[in-house]
Design a protein around this nucleic acid. Structure first.
Lengths: 232, 232
DNA sequence: TTTCGCTGGATTGTTCAACGATCCAGCGAT
DNA sequence: ATCGCTGGATCGTTGAACAATCCAGCGAAA
């Protein structure tokens, strides 16, 4: 997933530059999973929809067993729900799930920002803020959404933890699925543009406590908004 | 996994008591995964060991494809590592992994305890503390270990978040694998018995900030100890 | 009419056998 | 000692098969 598994080039000695690139040839199952992830994020597959093994297998021109593996992976990421002997379905938002998701985000995002981060990582946060501004100017609604995700991803990346990064990546994938573009209008993006700016500034100034408080407040408000939209 | 999916009996009305029990018949793949998880936790399978599909399949009397599914699941939990075309191996501790694991624990455990919890959940924390005391009296080294895991699991459970619970369960499974009994002598358990007591008391007294600080200090020290043991 | 029970069709869960692709150890030639 | 080849083992993927399970529809009974 967001695996930063890049083989570090390890300062090859004078005795020769051995190639360190690992040609990435994702397995077929992996590519199927990737394709499904894409379709989920893009809203092609809506929550609750049933995915039939044979159909997907034929559509993508792969074996049913391969599809099965991809399903298993996505089910592990909570994007699909497996109901034994009935089939797999696109995950749906159950009661309490919104609070649950935001509980995780509060835990890892606030914790990450409170610990600060290297200048590079902070610069990445700043970059996400600017990306948002540009998207706003261009009236690019789509771009606004991904800029915001980049922003929060960059905050978690401050902690330099692979595990936290993948957890956050999964949470963001869930949110893309549940809170799809349809539910996100421009009005929604009104507040947090300047809010992200504030958080980022506080971070750059080393005011970590304040940055954490601002972020926490944002997450709480965001949860409220989402809860209000999705059936109370 | 740690899915608390129990169908809540929902206060069946007078019109009849419809059965709400969902007979759990885990699929074969699930049972294979469970068996492997057990062997990993028990130290039967040591880090770095290679797991050959055909061998496992024959040993457990299932098909190779089924083993494959189980492997995929465990790889998703970071207990196994899949190397394309080479095989799957029991995960090994890479440089930085210890810090990584503890970064996650700091994020979710401290966040959970700082938010407090219902009396029931707090009682569960207390129960884990007492469980540890009893194990200490009985000189039950094994019991001490699981009591500690129950303690930290109960802390995360304060947040009432399914997602946090499963994340924590996975982290604990990783720790069982890496920091196996062999590396845990009685000397190791010396400190935290009274420390858990303190944390729990602070929690019960509603001194959440202090409880969080104590927990954070413990985690930092624990990370240091583990780092010292496992090659610097 | 409503309920019950059955049956047929569709889909899943699992197994098996096969084949190409890839890796690895060994061995011989340079 | 290095290089290159080769054979065997294992993985990745496929396709087909069959039992188990679920679901909708339909007819029989209350």
């Amino acid at each position: 997933m967001a695996s930063a598994d890049q083989e570090k080039s390890e300062h090859a000695g004078i005795d020769g530059a051995r190639a360190r690139v690992r040609m990435k040839v994702p397995s077929v199952a992996e590519r199927v999973a990737e394709e499904l992830r894409y379709q989920l994020a893009e809203g092609f597959l809506v929550p609750g929809a049933k995915l039939t093994e044979a159909t997907i297998a034929e559509d993508l021109g792969v074996s049913r067993n391969t599809v099965r593996e991809a399903f298993a992976e996505l089910a592990g990421e909570r994007l699909l729900l497996r109901q034994p002997n009935k089939g797999v379905f696109v995950a749906t938002l159950e009661a309490g799930d919104i609070h649950d998701v935001y509980t995780v985000r509060r835990a890892i995002e606030v914790s990450s920002i409170r610990a600060g981060g290297s200048p590079d990582r902070i610069a990445a946060v700043r970059a996400a803020v600017e990306e948002g501004k540009r998207a706003a100017e261009a009236n690019d609604n789509e771009g606004l959404g991904s800029a915001n995700q980049h922003f929060h991803g960059a905050i978690v990346a401050l902690a330099e933890s692979n595990r936290l990064n993948t957890i956050m990546a999964q949470i963001l994938a869930e949110m893309r699925l549940y809170f799809h573009k349809a539910t996100m209008n421009a009005h929604f993006y009104s507040d947090w543009l300047k809010e992200n700016e504030q958080i980022c500034s506080a971070l750059e100034a080393g005011e970590l406590e304040r940055a954490g408080d601002l972020l926490l407040a944002y997450l709480n408000r965001s949860e409220q908004q989402q809860s209000a939209i999705h059936g109370e």
